[in-house]
Design a protein around this nucleic acid. Structure first.
Length: 276
DNA sequence: GGGATTGTTTAAAT
DNA sequence: GATTTAAACAATCC
């Protein structure tokens, strides 16, 4: 379940290897993986040079010198692996890029096939997937953050998960951020005091930066391009910890269902405000 | 076998 | 209009 820190780790891992390489071959083993308007660019990838690779929210973008870009969304179980061509394929590999003068290749692997890729032209209008994204959590200023959260009246956990509000936070980090800030996930955003919003903003920055420094969290499927796991899961304080004692106060961590998704919290460290 | 899970979109309900 | 809920998507794990 790659979120911002995992996707950032993947991009940092791929970037030094892929930059300036020329495409030798392309294989699409599961055609429905390719979505969107510009499918024909797929046929014309051969010989194209990679300018660079970057992240936006949870999306991975490979920019080609020709002016087109390839966009990946890993959804829940997608992986981008850089492996030797001699490495045997398994049935979950759906897309392969190979490079001139290199004996490794880039494989898109996704056991559940929720992930996708699509092409877009950088000069043209932004594709829907990019256009609808909110600001980057690590770039948004406190004053912007304050504005966003006071203009909405949704439950904080939902707002943090909403990609049009902030791009890149998923369920793991939404829960960890709220714990770090000491705020209950059901709190309505407009009801927060300025000092609580400051705590939330600081917690968001701190958690995401630490997670990136730990190369993300590996739960179930997440792997970086070398196939190695992240380390941040050992720092999780609430996510998936229901029934365990809180590391701060010893109270049992509980699990709630909010919007059909699990929310984890310490009922003592994250007291519920009376609804207003 | 049933239910939960994961991220996102979409439709329907509040 | 804003927000929440449920369903859908695919496959796996428990």
């Amino acid at each position: 379940m790659p979120e911002l820190p995992e996707v950032e780790t993947i991009v940092r891992g791929l970037s030094p290897h892929l930059s300036q390489l020329k495409i030798k071959g392309v294989k699409l083993l599961y055609p429905p993986l390719l979505r969107g308007e510009n499918k024909s660019h797929f046929e014309r990838l051969k010989g194209k040079k990679i300018l660079g690779i970057r992240r936006r929210g949870k999306l991975i973008l490979i920019d080609f010198k020709s002016g087109i870009s390839l966009l990946f969304h890993l959804k829940m179980t997608g992986q981008l692996l850089l492996v030797s061509k001699s490495e045997p394929l398994d049935k979950h590999v759906h897309f392969i890029l190979s490079f001139i003068c290199r004996d490794f290749e880039l494989r898109f692997r996704d056991a559940r096939k929720f992930g996708f890729l699509s092409f877009f032209i950088r000069e043209a209008e932004e594709p829907q997937e990019l256009k609808c994204l909110g600001p980057e959590p690590l770039e948004v200023s406190f004053s912007q953050f304050l504005k966003i959260f006071s203009e909405h009246r949704a439950r904080l956990r939902n707002l943090l998960l909403n990609q049009t509000v902030l791009a890149g936070i998923g369920n793991i980090y939404a829960n960890e951020i709220l714990f770090q800030a000491g705020i209950h996930p059901l709190t309505l955003s407009h009801s927060l005091e300025k000092n609580e919003l400051w705590r939330l903003w600081m917690a968001m920055r701190e958690i995401l930066k630490k997670a990136i420094a730990s190369q993300g969290s590996s739960i179930r499927d997440y792997r970086d391009p070398d196939g190695s796991q992240g380390n941040f899961q050992s720092f999780h304080k609430v996510y998936g910890k229901d029934g365990e004692p809180c590391s701060v106060c010893g109270e049992r961590i509980i699990r709630l269902r909010i919007g059909g998704r699990s929310a984890f919290l310490c009922p003592r460290c994250q007291r519920k405000k009376i609804d207003r």
